[in-house]
Amino acid sequence: MKQVIRRYRNTIIMGVVFTLLLIIIPTIRDKAISSFLNQMKTILFVIPPIFVLLGLFDVWVPRETMTQHLGRGSGIRGIIIAFALGSATAGPLYGAFPVAAVLAKKGGSFFNILIFIGAWSTTKIPMLLFEIKAMGPLFAFTRFIVSIIGILLIAQIICIFITKDDRTRSLETLASKYI
């Protein structure tokens, strides 16, 4: 119970502020409530199936075998696997860093790790499903394709900009973060 309250502390505070504001300023009442319900509806309807899919992803996608194919010289296959690995998750960007450490430890190439980070940040499949629903398929798919190009470009540009030393040092730092 205590844990639940702590977890919902911010929500409760905002709920109180929300209610107070509606009482003090009645002119915003209708708009605030309808906007809240509108967004709530999207979330309640769309989120459950996405999280079920996520759970299934997590259980069925064999991460271990995938990470073995990310080394230098893994070519297009390595890039595709890096994309798939990053896209099949739902965590925030900072959740990707520890996983990147695992990839570095297991011999993943620097380029593929950058692809993985990029994919984790923007081309997540569960997120795409949600984006289609909220923003429309045209917006979502365009952003998806543009992002894939962007991720490849950014990874390539980083690899051009940095020296071999930078790359080795970065891979070592990453691998040392592996617990």
């Binding site: 919902y8 709920g15 504001l21 906007s35 459950p48 999280f51 759970g55």
Partner: peptide
Amino acid sequence: KAFKSLTNILPQFLTVLLIVSI
């Protein structure tokens, strides 16, 4: 796992929703 991630994200969800609505 699905249920756990859902309950993890829910409080954050509601908070942002309330702020955005206001």
